[in-house]
Structure formats: C-alpha cells, structure tokens
Design a binder for these strands. Structure first.
Lengths: 243, 243
DNA sequence: CGTCGTGTTGAGCCGTATCAAATTCCGTGG
DNA sequence: CCACGGAATTTGATACGGCTCAACACGACG
C-alpha cells in the first residue's frame, strides 16, 4: 500500500473531525514522518521504554495496557482509528504502558522531536493536541467511575456501548454491527473482572437480546436499552480534532 | 490576605516546579485574573455547568468527583496545591465532574477566554499545559489499574501513599506527618469500596503499624513497607511545570 | 442536652473470584 | 483431507472478599 498524503487522508474526510486550515495542512504534511503497518499481536510500545515516535491510528484496532508487579494486566483503553498514541511518552519522557495491535494496523508516524516545532509554529494544532489529551483524561475519568461504582453487568454493557458508539461515529461497521477484534480476556482485563465472570455476563446480555459478540463482531440492536442498563447517557459525538 | 504576584508566588519557589523565563513570568502576571478564597465544603465547579474560569490551587485541599445516575459518587482525584483545575471545561466546553473544597482553599484564577492567547503568544507555556494534561492522564491510568487489579488493602495503601508523597514532594507537612482533610467516605468513594470496609482496612493498616490517619493527619512511618504492600514503585518526583 | 456528622464494630449475605473440565475453533503438518 | 495441538470460549461447583444492615461511640454545636 502506498503512503498517503494528509490532504487525501480518508480519516480526515469524515465529518467527525474538524477540517484543517491550509497552513495547518501544509505543516502536517511535513510533520508526518511516514507510515507504519504492523501485524496482529505486535507491540507498538513497551512499558518503560522511551519512544522517539508518536502515532495516529489510520486503520485497525489495538489496546493500551499496563502490567502490575503481581503479573495482573490492566487494559487502559481500546485503540481505534483516529486515536493518538504515545503522547505521554512524547511529553513525559517515557511510556507508562504498553501498546499492542489486536488486528493488523496502519499508523501515521510523527517524530517526537518535531513536536516542539508544532507548538512554536502552529498554536492551533498545539491547542488540538491539548484538546486530545484533555478528552482522553475525561474518558479515563469515566472509566474510573465505571470500575469504582458499576457492577459486572453494567460494566460490560458500558464497555460494549463505548466501543460500539466510537466505531459508529467513525462510520466503521454497518448498521448495528461493528468489528470487535478482541478476546474476552481483553475485555475482562479492561473492566477488572475475571474471564469466567465476563463470559457469563456476556451470555446474560446475549440471552436478554441486548448485545451479541462473536467472531470478532459486535452486534447491538437496541442501543437505548443497553445504555439504560449501563446507566450512561448517549451523548452526541462532538466534532473533534485529528492530528 | 493580599493578592500575590506570580513572581513572589510561594509555590513557584519550590524546586519541584520548573522556573519561569522572564517573558513567561510577565505573561503570567497578565494572565492571572485574580485570586479566590473558598470555605471548606463549598463547590468550585458543578458537573455539567460551563465554567468560564480555570484555577491553580495555591493552598488547601479538595476533591474532584462525579455522581452517577444511581446516586453513587466516584471521587476522581484529590486536589492538592499546584494542581490545575478546570482544564477540561476550558477545552471541552463543559465540566464533566464537580470540584469541592474539603478545607479552606486559596486559588489563582484565570479566564478561559485568555487561554487562546497563551497558545498564540507563549508556546512554551502551551507545552506546559499539555504536559499537565498528559500527567493527569497518566495518573488516571494508574488509578484505573488500581481499581481494576488491586484488592482493598492494596488500594487503601496505594491511595494513602500517593497523597503522602504528593504532599511530601511539595514540602507540606513535617517528617512522617502530612495533613489529610478528608473523611473516610471520601477515600471509600475514590477507591470503589464501601465506607465500612474502608474503615476496617484502615484499622488493619493501623494495627500493622503501616499507616495511621486521624484528626485530619496522616502518619506514615515506613514508606517502603507500605509501597511494598501497595505493589507500587516509589518513583522520584519529576520536576514539573506550574501554571 | 438532644441532634448531627463521623468513625467504629459485628453479623450475615451476595457478587464475583477461583478451580476444574468440556467444547469449539483454527492453523499446521502429515 | 484428516489428525493433531493450542488458544479461546463455555459451563458447573465451590470459596471468599467485600457489601449491606444495624447498632453504638464520640465530639461539635446549637
């Protein structure tokens, strides 16, 4: 696959993302250092390693996770197209968690060392970067509330819903069906539940005809009912920046 | 109490924070819109309300929390001197959680509408803002891992340790003693535990002589042993920016 | 001197973890 | 094309950590 210019980036065309001004676009063309394609299962970043690069996901899905001293794994977030990866390493010096592809992925590559130029020359893009960091912070706040205050059923419903709507907003998948290239163990590790209990909870949602997930596909017929169960309001997707 | 200039800000003098360049300092003097003092118990921000201002904590402590539809409360983080408050509202449009003072607090006030000028005129400060957002994101990632993978004892140990070291790094408190103006209910809501179980867990730590918390003061004699229990590494505090 | 907020302690129960094993699904090599 | 092995999913049985309910202690305050 040939490398694509930012101008014709298929992601950017989506109305979910704010449009670039001409000078922003020009800058980004130079900022973009290349493209990277990785196989399912490979690691983009490893906990503790300093990463000289940051990425934007173009295609495919993955996850960010952290392993504790006792060997347990916490999945911090699922990685979808449009997501910025490695900003923490870019700013704080080293990566605090690992990033793994769970399907084949294509990514846009930027050099961390160019980030400072972005701040000097393109304040509007700098503002966007901060916006993205703040949005991620907000999302993690919701996650904390989920792990702290929701029971197993609500957690699973919440997570499936989140993934479903994030993908739908991107125009990925068709109708009530979106791709979901994860294992049940990944979901369990994201929600702080055991694999067994996650499995049983999924079975319950399936029998209640709220959500069905198999063969790497997630099917949600009645979003409202599931959102009700998850105790979450289905907010409109805000137009957001894309790096 | 008279208002203080950034140049003589007692917080900024601490070696924990990076020093300002002259032009940064000059800009901040203008950026600072005023000071605010609030009583214990009062709210700085309410969930869902758009806030025209952002703050930096100068003195006192508080907490950020979110209430779910079922009435349960999740404390997202404890607010300490040096913390930036309301960045989310500043960037995303509205506040996603509430902020309450748990002791008397003094805060530095900035106008959200001036933030854009900061990005245009002071890229180094803009970079700092993003750094702060990324650091907060990192912290919330750790919190997610704690709620997801640690049991009650480890959670409490982790939280006490966090507060203790954050305050110690600021030079607040003396020796093994730091102020901790919270209720047990606040800690319980932060960790996703019931009040009763939190109380019993605190009692256990007390009897094991690992941590003692009463009368608004936290006493930790052996940091290493507590860190061991919490399965967390005691990292050196990195020099950080202060807005 | 009652009331209210906070902390403390005990009893019993429930949600979820853990252990164990069967089943399905797939990629690989014969 | 089939046999095999390993990974992922499913299901059942049992154990336990943490929740809920309930009562009491204590100090601050009107």
């Amino acid at each position: 696959m040939r490398q694509i210019s930012c101008e014709h980036c298929p992601l950017r065309r989506k109305s979910l993302f704010r449009a670039f001004e001409d000078d922003e676009l020009a800058f980004m063309e130079g900022f973009k250092a290349g493209e990277l394609t990785v196989d399912r299962g490979s690691h983009l970043m490893i906990e503790g390693a300093p990463s000289p690069q940051i990425f934007t996901v173009l295609e495919g899905m993955g996850l960010r996770y952290k392993t504790l001293e006792n060997g347990r794994r916490q999945v911090i977030n699922f990685l979808l197209p449009g997501d910025l990866v490695g900003l923490q390493a870019g700013l704080l010096g080293e990566m605090k968690h690992s990033v793994q592809a769970t399907s084949e992925m294509r990514l846009c590559v930027f050099n961390r060392s160019d980030l400072w130029a972005l701040y000097r020359k393109q304040p509007s893009l700098a503002y966007d970067v901060t916006w993205i960091a703040a949005a991620e912070e907000h999302f993690l706040g919701e996650t904390v509330a989920t792990l702290g205050q929701r029971d197993a059923t609500q957690r699973v419903a919440w997570a499936l819903l989140k993934i479903y709507s994030r993908l739908s907003d991107l125009g990925i998948g068709q109708g009530p069906r979106v791709p979901m290239p994860y294992r049940q163990q990944d979901l369990a590790d994201a929600l702080g539940l055991s694999l067994v209990h996650t499995n049983k909870t999924l079975a319950k949602l399936r029998s209640r005809k709220l959500a069905e997930w198999n063969d790497g596909e997630l099917h949600i017929s009645d979003v409202e009912k599931l959102a009700d169960l998850a105790m979450t309001d289905t907010e409109e997707p805000a137009r957001r920046p894309l790096l």
